[in-house]
Amino acid sequence: MIHKFIAVAATVGLVGVAAAVGAQDKPGSGKDPQLGRAFRVPYRLTDTNHFLVRVRINGKGPFNFLVDSGAPALYVATETAAKIGIAPPEKGFWTPIDSLEIEGGARLEKVKGRVEDPFQLVGMNALGLPGASIDGILGFTILARFKLDIDLTRDRMTWTRLDFAPPDPPVPTDEDRKNPPAEMQLMNALGPVAKGLAFLIGKQPEEQVAARGFLGLEWDEAGDAKAVRIVRVLPESPAAAAGVAVGDTLVRIDGKPVGGLRSAREALAGLRQGRAVELVVRRGDEEKTLKATAGEGL
């Protein structure tokens, strides 16, 4: 029966495999200097409610990897593996990985990964569901080395390195890998099903991001009226070219009244590079309408 189980693990790549069978990975002889350290790990929440973190493998990347305690090990998609320059071994199941860096500073040396395309990744990527490509999965053998602290109201997780080396999952036999139980074959069919659906109805495009444009002015907030006053105009900046002067008070940005720093920031938050913006300023007793073209930079 354990074979059936392992076969499932192999095909799904997710249903974990037995620690009981796996060999215990001894922590390295010298103490890892990262033990006990807390790392702030930036993450992205996908449209499918998955956590993606960025990793570099053997110095290559960054790649988007799924944080998945339901996966037993580290999975590297075949396309990702090709970019890194690693391949499944001719014999055996695991591919040795020299270094795995996780954005935020955590670094693991000499870990094992499985080069494979779990059907969920194939399916989600085919439909473009997450809104970003997923290049692999961080599963138990990686996650268990950390105490994980996850709070969706913050933009980073905290991962604290534990002095704990999780066991490898056992390796399924070739026979089990080739003949998964019928239930799992059905699940595995979902990858192709999703690809078929994508062919019929199209793939969701990835989100497009653009950089905000640059004006080159500094401001502060003065008085109870929350007037936003220009305190500095950077030389040769778009703001300088438009004629903005120190001491001007911002009255309106593109027609939107400015009542405090927050509204000024919000009014400019969507300004793209190369776009024009109309600034109405009060200078002494008069109001002036100035036109600036947002430049490149930050």
Partner: peptide
């Protein structure tokens, strides 16, 4: 519809550099 969402990334403050 298959329309890419668009988002503008606005820096929190002024840095004074061009990339």
């Amino acid at each position: 519809p298959k329309v890419a969402r668009q988002r503008v990334l606005a820096p929190g403050g002024l840095w004074g550099l061009r990339l």
